[in-house]
Structures are given as structure tokens and as C-alpha cells.
Amino acid sequence: MMASGSSATLDAPVAARPIRLPRWSVGLFLLLPAVAFLVVFLVIPSLTLLSYSVLTQSAAGDVGLPFSVSGYGRLLLTPAYQRVTVLTLKIALLTSLFTALLAYPLAMVIAYGHSALSRLTMMLVVAPLVVSVVVRTYGWQLLLGSGPNGVVNWALGLFGLGQVSLQILYTEWAVVVASVHVFLPLMVLPIATSLSRISPSLNEAARMLGASAFRAFLRVTLPLSVPGLAVGLTIVFSLTAASYVTPQMLGGPRGLMLGILLEQQVTTVFDWPMGSAIATLMVVIALGAHIGVTWMLNRRRAAVPAAQGEA
């Protein structure tokens, strides 16, 4: 008799009562549907996938023993695949940096602007999220198309720059441009939240102590908004690294990312161990970004008291 000791001893006439469940069992009961859903549709498939990546596939296509890490070996050691991984990381990095640069001023307008302007900016920033990714990506195809068919090149032609026909579509840059567009709100929102939490009197105090508006921003506002910036960078980096539709439609052969490689391996080559290894790598990249940023934030917080008057 180990269960719920205190209530058992205090409530003497146990038998006289209807069955009383211990308190934790109610919580468990309420959690059950969600837990069951996650186990069936997330945990089991993930574990299956993970196990496939260390098994071998027979000629008939069955995945089974013996254990083998040849999928990882090929993925990490073949130069062609290495290029795909590096390109994926590069596109994710560029996208998150450009998104941050564009998002910061927008977040400032949302956090500090007059209420009407702030709400309008918010609406414009969130708007891309309500358009289907396929429609949006077709839009970018029209805009970025080469020669006179692309709106950007057509417009450049109008201004007498016709000779310089920009080749953007079907390069990694098309993926970066479209990804920045899609993920902008996911960067703006955490930064704006961070900014609006900073007391306005901190900026005023900095100004009164002799800081110009720009220096007050650099020394006070920017460092205090780093948590929001970090959240935005993590989200955008992970989502870009995992994207499939955008590189598929805009990237062409020069925008081959891990997501496309994964799809090819599974649906065209039918190489499940290889596909699983790619999927695992993608999860590791996303987790790595998250852990890395969290670690940097913690280190920064711990470093502040140690730093002797950085004067």
C-alpha cells in the first residue's frame, strides 16, 4: 500500500465512499487523448524513421537487419550530398539574417508606432501567411522569371537596364527571396514582443545620460531585444532548412536542398535508409539551431556580471 498515503490515513471511512481516484490520475486522464495522438502519429513514426536510417534495405525493398550506417556515410561523405547540406545551411543562414534585417524596423514600427500605423503594419506583415504557399510561390515565379517574362527583369528593361537580365529564378537566391517573404512575420512578431516589453524610461534614461538616439538604440534597445531576435532567428533558420515547396518550385538544380533530396530518395530512388538519414539530419539541424541559440543566450546572461566595467 504505497499509493496516496496522506489521504488514505486521513479519510478513515474509505469503504463508505464511492471510489475516489487519486488527483494525478485525473490529470493523466485529461492528457490521454493528446498523449495517444502524439505517440501514434509522432513518436512511433519518428522512431521508425530513425530505426530505418540504421538498417539495411533488401533487394526486394524490405528494411531490416543487419544494422548499418551506410546511409549516413553516403550523406556526409559524398561530395555531391555534402554540397546539398552546405547549401541548405547557407540558404537557411542567409534567409534568417536577411529576414532579421527587414523585420527589425517593422517590429519597431509595430512596437513604437501610433496605434493605427502599428496595426496596419502588423496586418501587412501577417498577410503572406493567409496566402497558400503554392500560390505565393507561383507569384515569385512570375516576378523573378528570366528575360522579358519576369516582372523584375521587365521593369529593369523599362529603366533602360535591359541588357542586365538578372538570372534569379532557379537559383538559391530565388529560394532566399521567397523564404524571407514567407517567414518575415515569424521574425517580426517575437522582436516586436521583445521591444514592447522594454520600458520606455530606459531609453529616456540613456538619452538623459548623454546618448544620442542612435547610441541609445545600440547600447540599450538592441541588447534588450536579443531574446526576441534569437527566437525569430531560430524559427526562421529551422523552417528554411526544412523547406520543400519553395526550393522545389523556385530553386531549380542550383537550389537543391535537403528537403528535395529527401523526397527524391524516398519517392524516386525508394532508398528508405538514405531518406531516413536525411530526415534525421534535418531534425538535427533544427534542434542544433535551437540548442545553439539557447546556449548562447545563457552564456551571455552568465557573462554579464562577470564582465568588468567594459568602459
Binding site: 524610461s201 530606459l202 529616456e204 534614461a205 540613456a206 547600447r219 540599450v220 534588450l224 554579464v304 564582465a307
Partner: peptide, 8 residues
């Protein structure tokens, strides 16, 4: 007070 929370 308006002290800068990230500075000692």
C-alpha cells in the same frame, strides 16, 4: 529607477 537591466 530605469536602471539598465543588462548592465551591472
Amino acid at each position: 529607477y530605469a536602471l539598465f537591466p543588462h548592465l551591472t
